[in-house]
């Protein structure tokens, strides 16, 4: 991952999605109107968060096979970047909800699931900070990270589908994959997802390098 091309590609894709997302034509639906453009900015955040958390879990599994501490640092970097993406997804979703539902927050399975996911990952960071010993911190937090990812998939993937929800994509509400996401929107949406994932990986990589430098400095 030393090469530059994927970073440039990520930036270009995000620029394209911002310009295209604000200017390209979108279908006109009742209530949603122009807020449908939020799809390019809100849903992509969740996609990239889930991918970053997946990478974080993979690093944790790799840590448990061989106890290489750099893997643990990578897992932490991916998790905190993913957490940041999740926070942005929450904010964009709340602004969208204010304009379509009339309120920032509703008691809804999908929203509850994401709130709980945020809490689980906050607990992960608290767990990391509350263990003094380096070795056991890495081990215990790797285990909790795997548990957290599996639970997150259950909460935001399985649980909201079991009940009705106000959120698009549930309970008969339109969402992507349905009639409102026409091929024009797909042309912006998928590049945006890839772009944000690439940017997220880049941020995580920088964070990992900073952490490594800090640890090296402490050890000198």
């Amino acid at each position: 991952m030393q090469s530059k091309w994927w970073k440039i590609l990520g930036i270009l894709l995000i620029l394209y999605s911002i310009i295209g997302g604000l200017l390209f034509p979108v279908p006109h639906l009742n209530i949603l109107n122009e807020t449908i453009r939020n799809l390019y900015f809100h849903v992509t955040m969740w996609f990239s968060m889930i991918f970053l958390m997946l990478f974080s879990m993979i690093q944790s599994i790799r840590f448990l096979n061989g106890f290489d501490k750099t893997k643990d640092l990578k897992a932490e970097a991916f998790a905190s970047t993913g957490m940041f993406m999740g926070l942005l997804g929450l904010l964009t979703g709340m602004i969208w909800a204010q304009f379509t539902w009339g309120t920032f927050w509703v008691n809804d399975p999908k929203l509850n699931g994401t709130a709980v996911t945020m809490l689980i990952y906050l607990a992960y960071f608290i767990l990391r900070n509350s263990i003094e010993n380096d070795d056991s911190r890495a081990r215990v937090s790797a285990i909790y990270n795997i548990l957290a990812f599996v639970m997150m998939i259950v909460f935001i993937g399985v649980l909201p589908r079991m009940t009705d929800s106000l959120h698009p994509g549930n309970g008969g509400n339109p969402a992507f994959g349905n009639y409102d996401l026409n091929s024009g929107m797909r042309m912006v949406f998928y590049p945006a997802v890839i772009g944000w994932i690439l940017l997220g990986v880049w941020v995580a990589q920088l964070r990992y390098r900073i952490k490594t430098l800090e640890i090296n400095k402490e050890n000198i």
């Binding site: 509850n112 709980v116 608290i126 767990l127 649980l159």
Partner: peptide, 15 residues
Amino acid sequence: LMAVLSMPLLFPLLL
């Protein structure tokens, strides 16, 4: 820590 770690994990189960 037990409360902090388990509460969010158990919340959907409770729901």
